[in-house]
Amino acid sequence: MKSEFTPPIGKIANMNGKCISLIGNDIDTDRIIPARFLKCVNFDSLGESVFEDDRKTLKGKHPFDLEENKCASILVVNSNFGCGSSREHAPQALMRWGIKAIIGESFADIFYSNCIAIGIPCFTLPKKSIEEIQNYCDNQSLFLEIDLKNLSAQSKDLNFNLEIKESSRKMFLSGEWDATSTLLDNKNLIENKFNQLPYIKFNTNIS
């Protein structure tokens, strides 16, 4: 775990850091952060518990425990990463451990939107590129420079063209990933919509 945690704010256009590879398909959010750690009213101490049970099982050999990964910030995963529960605690725990971006074959839907909402870009690459990165990481350190403008990931040996939903890319570049204020800009439109919806006017005991 990194010493001081500062959440991302504003525009996110580029990032660079060391990759940490985690191999496996369908890694679910219960594994990322077991449910017992959800008993909290803030996210502050989640970083140290990320992958708690998997790490205990591997007794120090889990990628998140290896000395060489201590300062890694770009997580490289396989397919359907983050499936299962909607708990934002999962990306929050990863972020508080030090993860700033994730590159994978594919992501579960709710996990992906949670990541966007807290400022962690999730990029996709084809299976063979992910395997290339993961094999490389087995033998040596990989530092990637990611540029969200042209979606490039570069290092001294490997270069990739990343993919991400265009709407997500734009939101990071403009800072609108932190959505509340953008949504509130349309205050009048929201009121109009509220007044137009048929069921709001039904007599239902609700208001």
Partner: peptide
């Protein structure tokens, strides 16, 4: 009907709306 994370819960509380694809 769909599941959301906590930051989106915040957005629904504050705006009754969500940014979605």
């Amino acid at each position: 009907a769909f599941g959301i994370g906590t930051s989106q819960v915040r957005d629904v509380l504050a705006t009754q709306t969500l940014a979605m694809n």
